[in-house]
């Protein structure tokens, strides 16, 4: 949607700018000056702003994350046919939007979390093109319960069940990681030995 809006803006700008290149005498009259201001200032700034929104939106998509070769195995792990695998069961049961699967769980739900995620993404790009991708990919910092609780906190299925109820404070304070018990995550090392779900993406 944003892409189409930007394309329309770009085409409109290029047509008007082209007109000004072909008929420079237009800028001699007031109407031409206004046209030049719109074509050479207002429209390009709008196109740039909308383009930024479109790019940032696209950067949250699963397809964007998986377009880097080292991430392919992690994308594949979302299709492990075993409900005990947390990312796979979230992806396959629509507990997270499939088209924003990576971003939903790996963004930081604190203040400026989105910005931090974008900066991390730029760092990944740099390593991908100019550095060496590590053999084993690990998170920059331990996975924070805050990211799980962003959805699960206040959900009846979480709050009223044992043992969440008993250790709610420790989970909320990040003193005990959700991953202590829910420890089947992407497991890309053993992916070859597992069965995969062939459902829609």
């Amino acid at each position: 949607m944003a892409n189409h809006a930007v394309t329309i803006l770009v085409v409109l700008s290029v047509i008007l700018i082209g007109l000004l290149i072909l008929r420079p005498s237009l800028t001699a009259v007031t109407g031409g000056k206004v046209l030049a201001f719109i074509a050479l200032f207002i429209l390009p700034i709008s196109a740039l702003a909308l383009g930024s929104v479109a790019h940032l939106q696209h950067a949250t998509s699963t397809s964007f994350c998986l377009s880097c070769h080292p991430m392919e195995a992690y994308g594949k792990s979302l299709r492990i046919d075993d409900p005990t695998y947390i990312p796979a069961s979230h992806f396959q049961n629509n507990r997270i939007p499939r088209n924003e699967a990576c971003y939903t769980c790996h963004t930081n739900y604190a203040m400026f979390g989105g910005l931090k995620a974008k900066m991390g993404g730029l760092k990944h790009l740099y390593i991908y093109y100019f550095g060496t991708v590590p053999e084993k990919i690990v998170l920059y910092e331990p996975y924070n319960n805050r990211e799980c609780l962003h959805c699960h906190a206040s959900a009846r299925s979480f709050e009223e069940t044992s043992p969440h109820k008993e250790m709610r404070e420790q989970l909320g304070g990040n003193e005990m990681s959700c991953l202590t018990c829910h420890n089947k995550i992407h497991d890309v090392q053993n992916a070859d030995k597992l069965k995969f779900w062939k459902g829609p993406s």
């Binding site: 930007v6 700018i17 000004l20 420079p24 030049a36 390009p44 383009g51 790019h55 964007f64 377009s67």
Partner: peptide, 26 residues
């Protein structure tokens, strides 16, 4: 104005290309 126009056309066309190019480099 002509220089500005050419720079803007080049930038806008490049922007349109990056929007439809599905690559981390876009």
């Amino acid at each position: 104005l002509k220089i500005a126009a050419y720079l803007l056309i080049a930038g806008l066309v490049l922007e349109a290309v990056t929007l439809y190019w599905s690559s981390p480099l876009s």
